[in-house]
Each structure stands twice: as structure tokens, then as C-alpha cells.
Amino acid sequence: MITGNRKSVNKVVMLADPTVDEWSDLLIRVGAERDKQAFTRLFQHYAPLLKGFLMKGSNIGHEQAEELAQETMIKVWRRADSFNRQKASASTWIYTVARNCRIDWIRREIRRQRDVHADDLYEPRDENPSQVSLVQMRNKRVVRESIELLPQEQKEVISKIYFEGRTHSEVSEELSLPLGTVKSRIRLALKRLNVQLEADAEEVEEVE
């Protein structure tokens, strides 16, 4: 299962230089020094983005989005010491915190279930080797430029999945589209967003 190019992938990981990201610096300071000034700057930058992100889904209203954005930031403060910039950027890490808050909120508010928290169901963050590669970092810049340029039908399905937390099957039901159509739109969207899910040895070699 662990493929033969593991070694070369590891090399790329070691070369990754995430120091350019000021938000990650702030997050590290919050984790290591409990720095409230650094936290305030993170809050001013991320809380409005979180609220905007959560409101993009049709299943979460204005007030809940505000509440969830605040809940997410409190959790960011509490969990900041587990942030590892070798594994993820600040934005990606905060995204996963918000995603888990949203899962718990939906389970708590809609299904009245509060027994198990999303944090217990996702991969523990500190057990596994680094995954951020230069390839991924470069991809990220491209992603920023092209989300808005997606064809409407691709934007619609990928938004339902990421902003509302719906599965492919749920989206297919909701939009009355065959599952195969949803899958192919997502596949095309990921391709345009430069998200690489197939191992591409050449790309890895190139940056070594």
C-alpha cells in the first residue's frame, strides 16, 4: 500500500518552506505563548471569513454562522498548540477546526446527538508524517485564482459539498442529478482547481 516513491515524496516534504505565511506565524505564537494580541489579529482576519464561509451554505443562517465562527475561534485558541506548520497552512488547519465545529453543530442542533464529537472521528492530527509539499503549496496559489472561474454547474456541486457538508449522493438527490453526473462535475472541478489526486511521479521529481 505504501508506494515505492515514498522516499522521494519525503524529500519534497523536507524542502517545503512554509515560513512565508504570516498567519501561521501568528497561530504558532498563540499556541506557544498564549499571545492574545496575535490571537486578536487572527480573529480579525479569520472570523469574518469563517462567518462568510458558513453562510455560503444554504443550511446555516446568519446568526448560527456568527455563533459558529465564534465557537471555531475559541477552539482555535484552545487547540493552537497542536498546529504544525509542516503539515498544513493556518487556513487549512482553521478550515478543519471549522468543519468539525459545523459537524458537531449539525448533529447537536438538528439530530439532537451530542455523544461523540467530530474531533474523535477524524484522523488525529499529530500522529502522521508531514504531507505539505511544494507541489501542494504551488497548487494553492492557483486555486485562489480559479474558484470563481469555475463553470456554474461545477461551482454549484462543489459548493454544496464543501460549504454545506453534503455528500455526493445527497447532492445528487437534492439537485435531481444522476450520481455519475455529480461525480464527473466534481472531478472536472478538482482538475480545474489543480487538486491532484492521482500520484504524479514526474511532478514530484521536477521539484526535487
Partner: peptide
Amino acid sequence: SNLGGSFLETTTPAEL
């Protein structure tokens, strides 16, 4: 997950 992070970064902010 990075894609999720990028979606977050590029969202139109909503004032709290």
C-alpha cells in the same frame, strides 16, 4: 483539506 482552506481564504468576508 487544502482546498477547504483555499475556499475559506477566498470567501467574501461577513462582518461579525
